[in-house]
Design a protein around this nucleic acid. Sequence first.
DNA 1: GCCTTAGTTTGACCTGGATCAAGCACATGC
DNA 2: GCATGTGCTTGATCCAGGTCAAACTAAGGC
Lengths: 252, 252
Amino acid sequence: MTEQKVISFETIRVACKNCTLSTLCLPMGLTTEDVERLDDIVRRSKPLHRGDYLFRSGETFRSLYVVKTGSVKTYAPSEEGGEQVLGFHLPGEIIGLDAIETEVHACSARVLETSAICELPFSRLEQLTATIPSLQHQMYRLLSKEIGHDTEMLLLLGKKNAEERLAAFLISMSRRLHQRGLSPTDFHLSMSRHEIGNYLGLAVETVSRLFTRFHEEGLLKVDRKHVQLLDPAGIEAILGQSLADDHRARSS
Amino acid sequence: MTEQKVISFETIRVACKNCTLSTLCLPMGLTTEDVERLDDIVRRSKPLHRGDYLFRSGETFRSLYVVKTGSVKTYAPSEEGGEQVLGFHLPGEIIGLDAIETEVHACSARVLETSAICELPFSRLEQLTATIPSLQHQMYRLLSKEIGHDTEMLLLLGKKNAEERLAAFLISMSRRLHQRGLSPTDFHLSMSRHEIGNYLGLAVETVSRLFTRFHEEGLLKVDRKHVQLLDPAGIEAILGQSLADDHRARSS
DNA sequence: GCCTTAGTTTGACCTGGATCAAGCACATGC
DNA sequence: GCATGTGCTTGATCCAGGTCAAACTAAGGC
């Protein structure tokens, strides 16, 4: 009990200015003084545990959330059980941007593992951005980045085959973890095969078979949730490969 | 020649405050005075024609574009000919939001038919939003709306079958045209079957067959690019239908 | 320990939609 | 007029990946 309290305390108390994520998150490009003003509106909850909700679809939108440690998935529940996983969010990533317009959350967000989350009440953030131009600019950039990311996913779901989708997923995880100072070749997947499949528009069985195939081809090693990329270049080569094929086929 | 000049002039001169699209576009919720300030930065070009570019992938991002009349498609070209159509944009819709972050356009935009376009230099718009809170709010809303729309598309591409995709497309067109004061049941598609297929992640042949099937089922009438929805409710019923099926199957 | 439950893997089979291949309809040019 | 091109439709075939089914493997719970 005591130990858990200590951990919580450590996790919670990091101010924005001391946070290692400040280059990825909102404080980027802000002066020390402005970071302190931002810091004033951030609410830091105690750590959440696997399955806990940040918000649920249908709830009124009040805040944006930033992952500080751990990971979160967002998904759009469709009446009666079905759902589409929209994203897996790593430390420094902002969640809830899609709800600004309607002021109602259209998707749900729950943590995949014990995670620390910062909450940013949106109305206060909005007031702040009106007085700090660089913060406003950063908000535009973050919103725009989200659109760019969604665009990539549209391309993935619209044009890529199963193999390319999983390769894209692995490369994306690898890069994002690397940005956060973790190993780009050796990591833990906090989501299930089912969730990966759902996210990539594939059946669980297909994901499982692909992991096996990639393993057989010497591209990676898998032990349950632990992944080791043995040949990252080989995996990257899978992306765009079929487009080259496509072109070859058409021009012949 | 003279006639064309007259048309151009008429099209170009509409100020934001007199524009019928102001409820859909940025001016929403602004005071008359603020609309005039916005108006000052808007550049109105002469009408563009089918195939003209608003911008190309790889170009430096400088402006956002708003469709005033006509329609525009955006697409992400992938090396050597292949492309993913990202969207079809109707009057009042903003284009280019995904390029704010990187300051480089990742996609291209070209007009599908003779169209009038408003250009908004982003740096000036950004300055303006810093001094007009309601404009800033509207910008956040527009960016957020785009994310919400992309999310819907992800769901469509990730979970829906061919029939549901075309139904969703038709309903979306119908609603958006209706919002703009046009008939929700009787409209002209400015894009080709090929482009529709590309957008929906389907082959041209599939799109064509679906139009035929919908026609046989009495849901609509098609004559080349002209579409008439005979049973809009029937088409809407196709959406989410398979999810119900899915649930029925699983719970039995 | 042993039972239960949930996640994962593997195999066998099936199908929706892609691909291939014609034929058709309507422009546009000469 | 006829030739050429471009987009659309229709039919026949094929296959990637979904679905179904079963076995395997942790990880709790008691």
